[in-house]
Design a protein around this nucleic acid. Structure first.
Lengths: 258, 258
DNA sequence: CCGGAACTTCCACTCAGCGGGAGAGGAGGC
DNA sequence: GCCTCCTCTCCCGCTGAGTGGAAGTTCCGG
């Protein structure tokens, strides 16, 4: 670059991406100055880049001058594998589960040390449910999270065990206990939580597996959220298992292996 | 740019965006060379930009070398207003409609001269349904499309009437008839189609309105797809209307006016 | 009518990006 | 096994595209 550049070694692309980074769940609509500040870009530069991004359709400028994510980025997002493969395939199965059990059903994948909620059908509002599509929640305190962690590589498990923040008074925070819990999850092929993430909510989850050359691989977790201390909760395990198998089978057919 | 630049006047950003443009529904996974060709970027340049995009998380590189849309773009896409405002708000209402009428329910907004399907719950597979989330279909041949076109500004209507491609033998292709049809839709507050988009499918749709200072504005259309010649189809109009009003009311509360 | 904040336009300077070329890595044919 | 073809990766000298401070504009509230 040039001019009185006091920002050396930053590529144009990285600046443009930094601008996109300014947007987040908490800040889906931003003004020019906010974006400039949040992205650490001089106002003028932000202005020019925003112009280009808006022209292309990555962002839209509202009548009040604020910028928001445009339809083109939405379109592109729909092409992400979580969306295109997992969600599309899983949606009808989640719907089936929801029709049978009238509680909140959701599907999550592991994203680093978090459970990323990919699809969700909400039940009656009797249970406090935090998750939304796109939400990330800790692995150790959610049903789907435990399932995903139980199937994760050793180093991920070790890293996760190093930090088990207490979220409610029921959260499992002891690495030893969590290790045993994960072994249990692997053996039983389902995971439970009881008010470990948020008070007033229990959950049940099973793994979604795809057959690979190298054996079965857990690619997602299917879970439900219910009121705590529900008596017949374990009776629902087979329901989830059937749906999970259906998703797995369908994925194996659709999925582009290689 | 520099070097033996034979591509003058193309900004770095535009090149990066051109690379993203290479991805589409038909091509969600691409190799380096494919991307370079599709985006009209020299191989080397594409390579470097792809590296940056992948580092940031806009794209992911698979083990077979192909690139696909990354989670970060998926995340950003979720912040688009269609997703964040409309979909989130509408989903439970669509779900309610789906529980009552067991057919395919969907929500669409107008995107230029197309109906953009924003949310969808599929019914029993008895009826051929083309739409998916993110799909764009012509305004003149779909129920939701007619509703959206009936509410569109004059110039949009005029432009749409200039090209009414015949999709089946039932498609309305005469501008005069379409004009009367739209007037009818405005009067009745619902639209119908009968095998105008695809044989074997009929549809019914109503507008979703939000109260603005300037009066009510149609922001979306709520529709269902059913087998053709269904006798009691019009009995379903009130069901859709109730749901549409619910969505509209909820939107007015949520929506960030200004 | 003025002060201030937010946005837009202008423009001279210069280094970040460009892309041809060469090389590495693999798949497949003979 | 060897050669060919194709795709991807790394290198590096040249230069015009991008930079960002300053000045201008718009808008709002007092």
């Amino acid at each position: 670059m040039a001019g009185r550049s006091n920002a050396p070694g930053r590529s144009v692309t990285s600046r443009a991406l930094a601008i996109l980074d300014a947007f987040g769940t908490a800040t889906p609509r931003l003004t020019l100055s906010e974006i400039a500040e949040r992205s650490g870009t001089p106002l003028t530069t932000a202005h020019r880049l925003l112009g280009e991004l808006a022209d292309w359709g990555a962002l839209t400028r509202r009548s009040d001058g604020r910028y928001e994510i445009g339809r083109k980025l939405w379109d592109l997002g729909l092409l992400a594998p979580v969306q295109l493969e997992l969600r599309q395939v899983a949606a009808p199965f989640l719907s089936d589960v929801h029709t049978t059990i009238r509680d909140t059903v959701h599907l999550a994948v592991r994203d680093g040390l978090a459970a990323l909620y990919v699809e969700r059908i909400s039940g009656r509002e009797s249970v406090p449910v935090v998750s939304q599509v796109g939400t990330r929640l800790p692995l150790h305190a959610t049903g789907v999270g435990k399932v995903l962690l139980a199937a994760a590589p050793h180093d991920v498990v070790e890293q996760a065990l190093r930090s088990l923040p207490r979220l409610t008074r029921h959260t499992l925070v002891d690495p030893g206990r969590m290790r045993r819990e994960l072994a249990e999850v692997r053996r039983r092929r389902y995971a439970r939580t009881n008010e470990e993430m948020s008070p007033g909510a229990a959950s049940l989850a099973v793994p979604v597996q795809v057959e690979r050359r190298s054996g079965p691989a857990v690619v997602a977790a299917l879970g439900i959220v219910v009121p705590p201390h529900r008596r017949d909760l374990l009776r629902l395990v087979p329901v989830l298992e059937v749906a999970a198998r259906g998703i797995g089978r369908e994925l194996a057919r659709t999925r582009d292996f290689h």
